[in-house]
Amino acid sequence: MEQGQKIVGKEPIIELRHINKHFGSVQVLKDVSLTVHKGEVVVIIGPSGSGKSTLCRTINRLETIDSGEIVIDGAVLPQEGKQLAALRSQIGMVFQSFNLFAHKRILDNVTVAPRDVLHTPKKQAEAEAMELLRRVGVGDQAHKVPAQLSGGQQQRVAIARALAMHPKAILFDEPTSALDPEMIGEVLDVMTELAREGMTMVIVTHEMAFAKAIADRVVFLEDGQIVEESTDPKAFFDEPATERARLFLRALEH
């Protein structure tokens, strides 16, 4: 094993089994199965419209599925109610458009869910939130509101907000696609740091260099199907096994 590579556990955190989904008459996910183990960083890539965002969003049921099964840490993802909310609280999510709560200060953005969902006492929630905000490098912004922050800062707050729930895994749905180029790096740095600390992550991204560097496993999705999966990202990006992945990667180079 290469030096510096961390050891991925055998314990599955997220299991997708034979997922099918349609938007109207279009089938966007075709019998997709995927298992994410504890501590693993899975990067999903593919052309736009391939269903990768949809796949990511089905994991905490922001998108419903037509058939198949989603298992989170041994529990089947329920369709509704308190059980669904409870399972969601264990899976963090970072969106393309940040989606911070516009009316709340940065600090309150991070504490609201721990306080209301986990019933963490205010003092403790705020102390933890400050610690997280410092970790992602926006500690001095805690008392501003989202509109006063740059996109990169907002996205880092969004990551802190997800972390505050002590999630078992975090989903990243194209976290840098809405950012100005000069802000992409600061967000990717935070994510890289998280990966190093052993966070289980599912990342949908267009940043191929980042994917290559961070992934324990690369999943190439096209037309709603997993075309290629590789636990050796270097090999995948240099010499993909399938023709379709090769075409996709070559198209990106131009």
């Binding site: 049921r61 369709q79 109610g81």
Partner: peptide, 8 residues
């Protein structure tokens, strides 16, 4: 509202 489950 979310897409309703069977109960909803």
């Amino acid at each position: 509202y979310e897409p309703p489950g069977p109960k909803a």
